[in-house]
Amino acid sequence: MNIDVQHLAKLARLRIEDEKLSKFEKDMESIVSMVEQLPDVTGDASGLDPEHPMKLREDVPAEDKLSRAELLANAPKMQAGCVVVPKTVE
């Protein structure tokens, strides 16, 4: 199958350099042609399992909280207590 690597890269917010494109295309094609070999099966794949339902969390606020400084200590760029990103409006 022909895999549109550039389209996938765009969806995944990746950028594939031109010189690597043909290698990625070749790899992706061989990977996809490997994994697409699946039997013809049909059925419900939703995986619902009401016999083993999820235990839900009680609606009680946590008391011990990390500070803003601790939580955002890894952020590459901060200003006024906020994480900074390039200007963007949607």
């Binding site: 969390r57 609606d59 946590a62 990390l66 939580l71 006024a80």
Partner: peptide, 22 residues
Amino acid sequence: KTKIYCSCRNAFGLEVNTQICP
């Protein structure tokens, strides 16, 4: 009282990035 997937308070209008957790 809390958010949908964590135990942070569900509150409006507080100082930026104070009602957060990992």
